[in-house]
Design a protein around this nucleic acid. Sequence first.
DNA 1: CTGTTAGCGCATTCAA
DNA 2: TTGAATGCGCTAACAG
Lengths: 341, 341
Amino acid sequence: MNARKKPPAPGTTTVTEVAKMAGVSVSTVSRILNGSARVADDKREAVEKAIAALNFKPNLFAQSLKRGSSMTVGVLVQAVESPFFNETLRGIEDALSGTGYAPLIVSGHWNANEEAERIRLLSARRVDGLILLSGHLDDEEVIAFSEHLPIIAAGRRLESPRAASLRLDNVEGGRLATRHLISLGHTRIAHISGPADHIDAVERLSGYRLALEEAGLAFDPGLVVQGDFREGGGLLALNQLLDRGHPFSALFASNDQAAYGARLALYRRGIRVPEDISLIGFDDLPSSSYTTPPLTTIRQPVYEMGCQAARALLSLIAGKSVSLELPPLELVIRETTQRLR
Amino acid sequence: MNARKKPPAPGTTTVTEVAKMAGVSVSTVSRILNGSARVADDKREAVEKAIAALNFKPNLFAQSLKRGSSMTVGVLVQAVESPFFNETLRGIEDALSGTGYAPLIVSGHWNANEEAERIRLLSARRVDGLILLSGHLDDEEVIAFSEHLPIIAAGRRLESPRAASLRLDNVEGGRLATRHLISLGHTRIAHISGPADHIDAVERLSGYRLALEEAGLAFDPGLVVQGDFREGGGLLALNQLLDRGHPFSALFASNDQAAYGARLALYRRGIRVPEDISLIGFDDLPSSSYTTPPLTTIRQPVYEMGCQAARALLSLIAGKSVSLELPPLELVIRETTQRLR
DNA sequence: CTGTTAGCGCATTCAA
DNA sequence: TTGAATGCGCTAACAG
């Protein structure tokens, strides 16, 4: 029933066969594979030849089973399809490349239950560590998970021996954005906030209020409307705002996607950007350099976050302590903001 | 320090412990885990209780080692950060969700050598199958890989017992786009092509020429300029085109990203879209609904591609034959094209 | 129906 | 320096 002879399939050959071909024992092959002990040159050569000839790759499962390490790190992202996480994933991938570790990416879909479920899945796959990008899980739960699994969490602040976090100062970011508008002479500044249960969104709103206050400008709740961090929400939000009839000359959107939506709403109503209304976003997605006009925004170092997170996780896995330092948020002035005339 | 009672770490308990706690043998536990045989209700109950109490998850490596299946499928994407692949990844993830399979995503970076290297990496991890999204590998190499590994390839056409492909008719897409412009009265239609070594790009260009020909319009090489499927390339390309001085009233960009770049170039020069120039893209990225103005484009069913690819791969893995059918490319008329006046 | 046992492919003792 | 032997945790015969 089963076909006996197979061509040397990668993933079919084992150390035993390599050993046989090279005329040595399996342990010698293993030693060469891992450099775990000195081996005579002639044997080494024979083994290496056999490995090449058989197209041999050690079975990672057997290795994992033996070593208790999977050489895999889990990455819990909120949505693979979100442009926001893209560059972070690239950073993770780049940082991991060449280390032997591979990322296993799963999506939590902005849902605490699903996140917990995914983490369980990752843990069943015995990932050696976990990178958490944002998410709705309680910090306590994350710390609980970290008892068994080193964790680097982005978008949180948590202290624990087996966990570290990476978080930007979103209050400062919101303040930066708002101050930029104020410095251009704007005094009636609207804000599209993000989800009320999203800490980043809440902080950006705080930053907005803070900047207003610092400038002696009154906070007007009628100028704030809730979005959902996505284009559709931004569009809706801006329409609501406009319908309220409170005049404003500048708009701070809590993220770039919301800004895109708002931009479209403005376009539909024939309101020009930046001539009639100045617009600033938050994130600096790659596409924000190419909107019409290019979007002024607050740049988050997302790629660097990915790199750092991955590197830090590797340290954690190696039992070393980690210190995380991120470049600061940065105002990127492009063409959607201008001085109030 | 406080007395910490170690909660059973997930990934630490084994079938043996479960068996001991439930007072049965390991095989009984295994049988219950896999439903591979009938088990008396009382034992089943005891085992299930033990599993819950110990927070037990079977070690996937041990399972894989034993069964020779990793419950993992490899996904070779060109760039995790590319907006184009995002929705496809989501489709793959959705289709895989609940099947027990997890995707292992790696990037080939548009480079045949790196692609081959990544595939080797995936094969060392003993993935049960492979989804290839685009790429520079020769079809023959892909077929060679498929000897040992079931493969679904998007963006190719290949026949083999262990491989299947999923490919849209890009000639038709290019034709569709161009015909739309022609139907609006345009006769001087420019084209930003994609990389000359990218088959999709070449086919879209063919479609463009075909539509021109069908309409009795002469093909003018001076109206075609090469881009790179990215925003920057589109921007540059359009500037070149404009500098050539050949007049045109409509532009077909080989993908949406190029269209974004072109849009910006136009904006910079004060050329209005669609009043002065009609613009059509290709792909229908999610953000294309929110450009200013929203982009007319050819929609690729990328999400569906992901779903289908994943489902087909599962069939292939199960030893079944597959038939792949994709919804057709579709013209999405938004607001960057209008009748020539 | 259930328990015992033999490996899956590998890294690692322990002897030689 | 090398080889033989022992599990890692699990599934699947094979007996009972």
